[in-house]
């Protein structure tokens, strides 16, 4: 199959960006979207053009690095998949696709489709961890946890931090990410000692990073490759409210 790609090219964060058009004439429907970019890049290298910079690592939907916006949809048209899990069979022969980086003030573009998602790391640094003294690994079943709590916490923990929620949100809000990262710890017994300071500090860091604010459209839960529900955002709001009383 053949596809035409309009790809956002931008030399550096300071440079002006623009769309460049590339034709891919020999595309197998079994290729992943990233493989398509690899093939296009091979062609570019042969003709002495700087290849398209895009981020990728695991190529199996677990690292969260490969996010690009394809025709307006983060990670492309399917629900519950990352860009690396998207295959060309999802498109039709002759399609014209517009490929853009995540767009948010808090995600400065480094090059072409690569953005700096350090803002999400700083939210984690603000409290998305549990402080423990390491030693022998504790017995996995030493702390009984109700099944519903475990299930909910694990649903939140599937977040791979790709930033698609921010990318799709009309407000460029990071509430889905932050809520998942707060909830997967705050829902479990191990997260309790630092619960209130965690939620307060992570929300404050999210604010400081300059993300927009949630207006409950729900676009993020559709774009999320892990299908994380905005119920966690309600949960975060509640925990944040309660934290005001606890930590003052």
């Amino acid at each position: 199959m053949k596809v035409t790609l309009h790809v956002w090219r931008q030399e550096s964060s300071e440079a002006e960006g623009r769309f460049e058009t590339y034709a891919a004439n020999d595309v197998s429907p079994d290729m992943s979207f990233l493989e398509l970019l690899d093939v296009v890049n091979e062609g570019l290298i042969e003709s002495d053009v700087e290849p398209i910079a895009f981020e990728h690592d695991c190529r199996e939907g677990i690292c969260g690095s490969c996010g690009v916006v394809i025709d307006g949809s983060p990670h492309g048209p399917h629900e519950g998949t990352a860009t690396c899990q998207l295959h060309m069979r999802s498109f039709a022969d002759g399609d014209e696709l517009w490929i853009e980086p995540w767009r948010a003030r808090s995600f400065p573009i480094k090059k072409d489709l690569v953005v700096d998602r350090g803002a999400l790391d700083r939210i984690i640094e603000a409290g998305g961890y549990i402080s423990i003294n390491t030693g022998a690994a504790p017995d996995a079943n030493a702390i009984p946890i109700p099944k519903d709590d475990v299930d909910a916490a694990l649903d939140a923990a599937t977040c791979i931090g790709c930033g698609a929620c921010v990318a799709v949100c009309p407000n460029a809000s990071a509430m889905l990410f932050t809520s998942a990262k707060v909830a997967h710890l705050n829902m479990l017994p191990q997260g309790q000692p630092e619960r209130w300071s965690r939620v307060a500090r992570m929300v404050e860091q999210m604010e400081a990073e300059g993300f927009g604010n949630c207006t409950n459209h729900g676009a993020c839960q559709i774009a999320c490759p892990k299908e994380i529900s905005i119920d966690f955002i309600a949960w975060l709001n509640r925990d944040y409210l309660r934290a005001q009383r606890k930590v003052g």
Binding site: F19, V69, D71, G72, S73, P74, P77, W98, E100, R103, A104, R105, S106, A167, V168, P170, N171, A172, S173, G210, F211, G212, N213, T215, N216, H217, G218, A219, I222, A223
Partner: peptide, 28 residues
């Protein structure tokens, strides 16, 4: 809140995301 959210995305997408927003949520 609206001003903050506008500032959070200074450069928009060429293709606005397809994800459907309800008419009600878009017109708040």
């Amino acid at each position: 809140l609206t001003l903050q959210s506008r500032a959070a995305r200074p450069v928009g997408y060429r293709n606005t995301p397809h994800q459907e927003f309800s008419y009600a949520s878009r017109t708040m």
